[in-house]
Design a binder for these strands. Structure first.
Lengths: 201, 201
DNA sequence: GCGTAATCTAGAACAAGTTTCAGTAACTGC
DNA sequence: GCAGTTACTGAAACTTGTTCTAGATTACGC
């Protein structure tokens, strides 16, 4: 039984790691330009200078590829958040701040966001592991916002249920905005509304 | 400016209405058998005895087709609910009952549910109108559960925000269950959790 | 009923995701 | 440094959603 750290991937040689990064970078670039449908596997392969077959060896489907990209972006966001965490008074406010800050970032690259979110929502069982990874990362971010500077004991089942509901809302709400079915103000309202489930402290 | 009743469709001749129903029936059948990927446009066309081009004239894409199917199913559920509405004491409980009852129905046809929900979540701008229709129907159902027998005045913005959050949770949670990433119990918990946003009465 | 316009059919053609394969290059254990 | 295995390349093939076309059928105004 081998256990891998850092996102559970098998170890790669340097060239392989470089290929992987080139692929993710190409994906991000294409997605940022035209969203989900602009991420075409042949183009990703060409832009990252990798054969189509190789692309598929690294990421077994377009959805896998985009979910991995999402994880990548989320990781960057998480790093930023740890560097400058929200400073608001209550845990509820910190979560709202965190999500709104993430939202602001996404507004800067709506196409990229659309591509990643569509993939995440469209993902089926075969992408279960990868989606779980993203989901765990999100949960961690919200938990850190809730606990703030404090030590932060084990989250209760209740905590986790609330966080699940928050992320559900977060995702669906974002999709609705990307599809032009919800305004920015509405997304904000929804976030604030669902965060009322976090007890005041 | 022509306004159509009943789901905003242009009037159809009898044969056309029959074709449309055959298509929806075929879709439901195929979806129930193997979910989203089993709904193949050629098969739908063949099973409903309609040319492929005609299928596309009625439903401009696979996603449109499945969202229309969803509306159709939702409508049936709504009818059942009006016939035997939830009888619980508070509005919160009635909403929980309604959603859990819907969930129970979906557990009977998980593949069908998966096909419809995937399409709904994957839908982009071009399906905006149809998704809105589904969304309105859902909102109405929840509003009716909230008001119970009472007259039910205009919903406030706050009401609508809460309902949006509930449906977001409802959809994402269902998807997570369909993908094996959440248990039935978890879906139930999430529903109960999000419904705490409904004020007690 | 008749002519015209809209609709339907069968089938080919096209687009993008995915798979496959023969040949070449890179890594690994010794 | 070499043998053997694994990974990568380039290109073709296959699948399924979508579009297009030419010819038949149906609906509609008169």
């Amino acid at each position: 039984m081998t256990t891998y750290t850092k996102a559970d991937r098998a170890p790669l040689t340097e060239r392989q790691e470089a290929r992987r990064r080139r692929i993710l970078r190409a994906t991000t670039q294409l997605a940022a330009r035209g969203g989900y449908e602009s991420v075409q596997m042949r183009e990703v392969a060409e832009l990252s200078e990798v054969a189509l077959g190789t692309l598929y060896r690294y990421f077994p489907s377009k959805v896998h590829l985009l979910v991995a990209t999402m994880y990548d972006q989320l990781d960057q966001l998480h790093t930023q958040l740890r560097r400058r965490p929200p400073r608001s008074a209550g845990s509820r406010e910190r979560v709202v701040d965190t999500l709104l800050r993430a939202f602001k970032g996404m507004q800067r690259e709506p196409h990229l966001t659309e591509a990643m979110m569509r993939a995440l929502q469209f993902a089926d069982r075969s992408v279960g592991a990868e989606v779980d990874t993203v989901s765990r990362e999100t949960t961690t971010m919200i938990l850190e916002a809730i606990s703030g500077d404090e030590p932060a004991g084990e989250p209760t089942a209740e905590d986790l249920a609330v966080i699940r509901v928050i992320t559900h809302t977060w995702h669906s709400s974002l999709i609705a905005w990307l599809n032009g079915r919800a305004s920015i103000a509405q997304v904000r309202t929804d976030i604030e509304t669902v965060c009322r489930l976090i007890p005041e402290d």
